[in-house]
Amino acid sequence: MKHVRLVHAGREQWGVLSADGASVRLASGHDVAFDEAVLLPPVTPGARIFALGLNYADHSAELGFKAPDKPLVFLKGPNSLVAHGGTAWRPRDAEQMHPECELVAVIGQTARNVAEDDALAHVGGYTVACDYAVREYLENYYRPNLRVKNRDALTPLGPWVVDAADVGDPQALRLSTTINGAEVQSGSTADMVFPIARLIAYLSAIMTLEPGDMILTGTPHGVAFVNDGDAVVCEVEGVGRLAHRVELAP
């Protein structure tokens, strides 16, 4: 099942996407046409949002880094998220804004000191993120710094959370990004330096993961820059196709 978060009839709700993808069934029994739904990023309010840097060896090499010996984890605030169909705003003083397609694991049950072998059982579902970086703002303090990675609406996320049971092996999924239909990123989750199970084991030794917590698992190679008016699509096989536009910030 695919779980959609939206605003309908004046309040935030969650619903389930129909088999043909045309509508969302709400708990009340109402159906909302998917194309007309006012979507929200499918995040549990209050959940932690972890993200990974340099978690694909080919992307690290492209940036001139060697792959790290422990996960390069950073955190994001909910201000950074924007729903499928939304707009990511390019800052007026920056040209080097590049999209990063990522598989997102959503925790489904409490995880504390879990072993890698048991870790995937703690995943409830998956979604897709485009974790933009704005390279002009990189500084070498707590890098990647929040001015690069925690800007308002520079992390499109969605369109939905799909049940983990419907995805199969999360380390064998194709990821891609297109800008105006042209492919700029193509990779496989098989190439993660730290696979999802190891990330959950690592994080759960530091803190107690709770249902809804999200792990943006990093991006493969392909550094491309976006321009105003671009239509960007990030897709993870079997999870979803996340579309958004880029516009110049006011």
Binding site: F74, L75, K76, N145, R147, E210
Partner: peptide, 17 residues
Amino acid sequence: PYKAPPQAPVLYIKPGH
């Protein structure tokens, strides 16, 4: 590895937990 003093505020996140 810093190469220059910090320019923008250096922030970190402490989640609600």
